[in-house]
Amino acid sequence: MRSSAPLIDIHCHTAGIGAGSSGCFVSSAMRRNKRFRFFLKTFGVTEAELIDRGDELVLERLSQGLAESRHVTAAVVLAMDGVVNARGELDEAATEIYIPNSFLGQACHNYSNLLFGASINPYRRDALERLEQAAADGAVLMKWLPSIQGIDPADPRLKSFYRRLYELKLPLLTHTGNEESFTRADNSLADSLRLRSALDEGVTVIAAHCASNGKNEGQPNMERLLSLFAKYPNLFADFSSLTQVNRLGHLGKVLRHTRIHDRLLYGSDMPIINSFITSPWWHARHIPLLEVRRIASIRNPWDRDVELKMALGVTEEIMGNSGRIVGAGSPRPILPPPV
């Protein structure tokens, strides 16, 4: 793939257990779940390594993988705020995974190819102050997972948060469609139609995963998302996770809507691309066998992901959209730590 626009992955996860005083944590319920060890393995780390070297080791491994990629220039790494209680404070008992902005924002400055994606539950008592701090720390977007964080994007109380997002020119990357990676979820909160409040305030909204699975009010979530594009030029969608075995054919469905090709953004959903769940072999019905074999032999997970998605119909022009949205034309210089 050769394109004049940089290829930026706008949907990359990290992980942490609190090692190295990161402030991250994983709930005991999640740590007992088989997903916990699966995710550590796909990140290429072990729990023992994190305890020994700290949670920043995950970011180091992500940066190394990106440096070795032929296609992907940089990635937006996403923080993960938690559930908030009635007092507007973090509810640790109800939170399964927590990756604070304070840790991630600083750690990303140590790597020229990692961009900081902040996460703030807008129901926090000091949400606006946290938003200002995230912007000052170099955040390139805001990430929500409403069905897990208990956020209702249609809540009128969020208007001031949306207005400040718009003023700061920070896109809102928010999960749409059903969430299946946690032990519990309220998927009604990830209904695309709930995003109209943010869109009406002018916020650039990125619907993660193109709302490609699940239904709300009996209607497929993807249909509900597609109904919004004509009215809102500030609406975009990332096609991360659409090559997973449980989403076979979903990427093709999205690409058939050519009128939104300029609104589609590349995201990997790392570390999922580093697992059997996104193996090219699941797509052998749609890609020539020799091409499947070639793509499957690619060692770098980002390169394998890019080439699989292009084999399924994503164009170079579509791949270039994400770099323009996050304003990351080239890797940043490594910044010194604050005094």
Results as ranks from 00 to 15, higher is better:
F182Y: 10
A190G: 00
E201I: 04
T183P: 04
D191K: 05
F236C: 11
E167R: 15
P146M: 08
W144T: 00
C210L: 01
A154M: 04
L168Q: 08
R224N: 06
V140P: 04
V140A: 14
H175V: 04
L131C: 02
E129T: 11
L242A: 00
A185M: 05
Y162P: 06
G138Y: 00
L199P: 00
L165C: 13
S181M: 15
L225M: 11
W144G: 00
N187D: 13
Y162I: 03
R164E: 11
I151T: 05
D186A: 04
Y166T: 13
A211V: 12
D137F: 00
Y232T: 07
M222S: 15
N178C: 09
G249S: 02
N216E: 07
V140C: 09
L170N: 07
R224M: 10
D155F: 12
K215S: 13
G150T: 03
S181A: 14
P233A: 12
V205K: 11
D155H: 05
V205M: 12
T174E: 02
L228W: 01
R164Q: 12
K231T: 15
T174C: 06
L158G: 02
A139D: 02
A154V: 12
N216D: 04
V245M: 10
R194Q: 06
R224F: 08
K215M: 12
T176A: 14
L225Y: 05
A208H: 06
L141E: 13
E201Q: 15
S197Q: 08
A198L: 05
Q133V: 08
A198F: 04
E217Q: 14
L173Y: 01
R194D: 02
F229N: 02
L141S: 06
V140G: 02
P171T: 07
D155S: 09
T174Y: 01
L195T: 03
A208T: 07
S240D: 00
K143S: 05
S181R: 11
A136F: 01
R164V: 09
H175A: 04
T176S: 11
G218F: 06
S212V: 05
P220M: 01
R157K: 15
S147K: 00
N187M: 05
N216I: 13
N246W: 09
A154W: 04
L131Y: 01
D200N: 15
E180R: 14
P156L: 10
S192V: 10
E223T: 07
L226Q: 03
P233S: 08
L242W: 01
Q133S: 11
S227G: 14
S160N: 13
Q244A: 14
S181V: 13
A134H: 04
L242I: 09
V205N: 11
